[in-house]
Amino acid sequence: MTQKPLLEVEGLKTYFYLDNDLVAKAVDGVDFSIAPGETLAIVGESGSGKSITSLSIMQLINKPGRIIEGTIHLHNENLLTKSGKQMTKIRGNDIAMIFQEPMTALNPVYTIGNQIIETLRKHKKYTKQVAREKAIELLKLVGFPRAEQIMNEYPHQLSGGMRQRAMIAMAISCEPKLLIADEPSTALDVTIQAQILDLLQEMKERLDMSILLITHDLGVVAEYADRVLVMYGGQVVEETSVENLFEHTKHPYTNGLLDSLPSLEKEVKRLGAIRGTVPPAHSFPKGCRFSDRCPHVMDQCYGSNPDLLSIEPNHKVRCYLYD
């Protein structure tokens, strides 16, 4: 990884200031970088802060949430110093995003064609005619055989998988350098999920994009990512290559996740569930945030939160077991 990173996030903290004077530390000191052409996955359960991390990059955090610290560099430019207007330009042009539920992300009262043309005209300043041709081309690219017809259809006329294809067409329309995919296949059936994830992979190679893949599904991570961050309680607890994560798992939380997963390959009598539940972001345990659920918990863990340390090249872990 000698290449200059495309995106560099340092010390990112996004807090939500709740009504009852509580502070939800949804993202609490996250660092990572994405190289050009790389697929980085962020994996974690609900409440781990993975989605808020991606929304922070896009600066789509609404009140009562605020990015309170950190830098987000995209080709050496700090996005957090940009004005609203400049960010609008960057969103879509440089960074695009697709969401879990394409029905809520697409506008129900405009045709698919309208919505793609709008993006192209806004960002690329194409004429109507050129934008239309380009939109049809994009729909063909993402695998619609009857693209001209789809142009005139409304989101509700499409199935879940087709809507997600339309979303991808829109996201890649301005050839972004970074595509953030937030649970892109979670709402889809497995056979459709495979189609969509393969399509993303193909588009990534064709357009030389980087992908930030947000998911809770470790199987998806294993098949589609190059590198992976495991998040828990608003922090990264393990960061390494995909091979390392599954072959040389270090953090007790990652281990717990893998053990709780029923698998097609191996048979177990009982699943190794992690006890307890994810703590809410406004009341993490003192010390290590996983301490109250960890099977290897030591006295030290209740005292202070361990740092994310490199224990091997390309393998970082936040755990006192590896101190």
Binding site: T191, Q193, L218, V220, E223, Y224, S263, E265
Partner: peptide
Amino acid sequence: SVPSTDVKHRREKIHLTGD
């Protein structure tokens, strides 16, 4: 089509077209 966490042994995927 089920994504597998087995990074060593990849299953051959059979792609279904259409919905």
